Amino acid sequence: MNTLSYGLLTLLSANSLSGYELTQNIKPLWRAGHSQIYPLLMSMEQQGYISYQLIEQSDKPDKKEYSITEAGLEQLRKWVEAPAEPPVLRDELHFKLYSLWLTKPEEAKDLLQKRAEFCKSELERYKVLLKANEVLRDERGETRELKATTFGRYLLIRKRVLDMESSIQFCEWALEELEPAK
């Protein structure tokens, strides 16, 4: 199984979801589309890690709602306990910053300002997700502890908040660096 497969199991460990819902929920965590997700769902179902229930719909095509099985939970548990691979760093901005000397100062500033604006937008989105996670935690009567199903989600959203705050700080610092020395 690949990392995306484990990501799908992770999402299914919290809730049963349709393929469309899985595709939408994975977006903040991992870049993947329908063409990757649906073959993995079929494979994981054949391996016994997930099952599905066919939901009949009158106004739309029928949908499959996937759930993790005990075998899937055990597979996910083993994966979670194994050391994580080093993070993959793929950010086009890094190459652009390296080659910044090839552009005009106003273009360089624009590049950094647009990244800062994107990060500010993402920061607001993650703050909304953080509040939603708190509501979910309260609804489930959970506390902020390892065994709570919402705890890992909370840690992940907080990481993304910190990442966006750090990126905004970097952009602001870099914009100051672009100002002529006085």
Results as ranks from 00 to 15, higher is better:
residue 1 M to N: 00
residue 1 M to T: 06
residue 6 Y to T: 01
residue 7 G to T: 05
residue 7 G to V: 09
residue 8 L to V: 07
residue 10 T to C: 04
residue 16 S to G: 15
residue 17 L to S: 06
residue 23 T to K: 12
residue 26 I to Q: 04
residue 27 K to W: 02
residue 29 L to Y: 06
residue 35 S to H: 11
residue 37 I to M: 07
residue 37 I to W: 01
residue 41 L to T: 03
residue 47 Q to S: 00
residue 48 G to W: 05
residue 49 Y to P: 05
residue 51 S to P: 03
residue 52 Y to A: 03
residue 54 L to A: 10
residue 59 D to L: 13
residue 62 D to G: 04
residue 64 K to G: 00
residue 65 E to G: 02
residue 69 T to Y: 09
residue 69 T to N: 01
residue 72 G to W: 00
residue 74 E to N: 12
residue 76 L to I: 00
residue 76 L to H: 01
residue 78 K to E: 01
residue 84 A to V: 07
residue 86 P to H: 00
residue 92 E to P: 06
residue 94 H to R: 02
residue 94 H to M: 09
residue 96 K to V: 03
residue 100 L to H: 04
residue 105 P to Y: 03
residue 105 P to L: 05
residue 105 P to F: 00
residue 106 E to T: 11
residue 107 E to Y: 07
residue 108 A to Y: 01
residue 111 L to S: 06
residue 112 L to W: 02
residue 116 A to S: 12
residue 120 K to A: 10
residue 121 S to G: 10
residue 123 L to Q: 09
residue 128 V to W: 06
residue 128 V to D: 08
residue 133 N to C: 12
residue 133 N to A: 11
residue 141 G to H: 03
residue 142 E to N: 10
residue 143 T to S: 15
residue 144 R to A: 15
residue 144 R to D: 13
residue 147 K to D: 15
residue 151 F to S: 04
residue 152 G to I: 06
residue 154 Y to W: 14
residue 154 Y to I: 09
residue 155 L to N: 10
residue 157 I to H: 04
residue 160 R to A: 12
residue 165 E to W: 04
residue 165 E to K: 01
residue 172 E to H: 03
residue 175 L to I: 14
residue 177 E to L: 14
residue 182 K to M: 08
